[in-house]
């Protein structure tokens, strides 16, 4: 079962919720996948050991100029201007390439072969509590994160309970993380920004047909904006986590709330079991 923790707005506490949920259920066989490959942070909290690292690359074309007849078939099929002929040469622009392999397929001389370009790293390790973490780390300066997110997700064992920490936003990277999830847990803060971005993510999830529930983070006990919205949309609120300076300080040190604050352990344990119940039902519905 795949549960993706998402938010729309950045910094609402996705990673905090992901790592603390995973850490409060030792023995449940939870695996964590950090798909916020632009700025992965889960490893800071889970502290995996003996990490293995492998470079992840994507296919880009390589042209054998001895075979090329300058027919321009590759240039015509490429929608991304990633391959072009100029002055009896074929130029490629690997950073523009979407790896569709059209040029390779269309070349009548078989002059194009698949080469590769490194997008970033895939890192895996297990922490002292036995929680396995897999994450991607996009190379700085690289624009394309979705292929790396897909590679991280490819490591998911669908039979285990997998928590996916998604990137913020609602465009390609966030959608790449949410696709094929069985359930989405939305972390929202009760502010106008939080509400606006939550609504965008809910729209995306409806499109993707993923069942969902909400956790309100930094609840001040006053603002009802998220409650009102959730009631209108018929989305259940599974938990409310208060804002405390103590909690903020624990997170800022890269520590787990469930280890440092007993009350938080109770709340997260409760959230974990409610979430599992809902996600099971959501999975059935699908």
């Amino acid at each position: 079962m795949i549960v993706t923790i998402a938010s729309g707005k950045g910094g609402t506490g996705k990673t905090t919720v992901t790592v603390n949920l995973a850490a409060c259920a030792p023995g449940a066989g939870v695996q964590v996948f950090d798909c916020d490959v632009e700025e992965p942070n889960s490893h800071i909290f889970l502290k995996p050991e003996n990490c293995s690292k492998e470079p992840i690359s994507t296919m880009v074309p390589e042209v054998d100029m001895d075979k090329c007849t300058l027919c321009k078939a590759c240039e015509k099929i490429c929608q991304f201007s990633a391959i072009t002929t100029i002055a009896k040469k074929v130029m490629t622009f690997p950073e523009m390439c979407h790896s569709c392999r059209g040029c390779e397929m269309v070349c009548p001389e078989n002059a194009i072969t698949a080469s590769s370009r490194v997008l970033g790293d895939l890192i895996q390790g297990t922490n002292s509590a036995g929680i396995p973490l897999t994450w991607g780390e996009l190379r700085v300066g690289e624009a394309m994160s979705p292929p790396l997110i897909e590679k991280v997700k490819a490591r998911i064992n669908p039979k285990a309970i997998s928590f996916v920490d998604g990137p913020p936003g609602t465009s390609c990277p966030a959608v790449a993380a949410l696709r094929h999830s069985d359930f989405a847990l939305l972390v929202a803060e009760p502010t106008p920004f939080g509400l606006n971005d939550l609504a965008l993510t809910v729209e995306a999830l409806k499109k993707l047909d993923v069942p969902m529930a909400i956790v309100i983070n930094r609840d001040d006990g006053k603002s009802r904006v998220i409650d009102d919205y959730a009631a209108r949309e018929g989305i259940e609120i599974l938990a409310r986590l208060p804002f405390t300076r103590e909690a903020a300080a624990v997170c800022s040190k890269g520590l787990l709330l469930v280890d440092e604050i007993p009350e938080m352990r109770l709340r997260f344990t409760e959230l974990f079991s409610t979430l599992m119940e809902k996600a099971d039902k959501g999975g059935e519905r699908k």
């Binding site: 991304f80 201007s81 990633a82 072009t84 100029i86 002055a87 622009f93 523009m96």
Partner: peptide, 15 residues
Amino acid sequence: NLPQGAGIQAGKTVA
């Protein structure tokens, strides 16, 4: 109005 690669295409146009 090209989604991407305008510089490449413009380069080809003038070349």
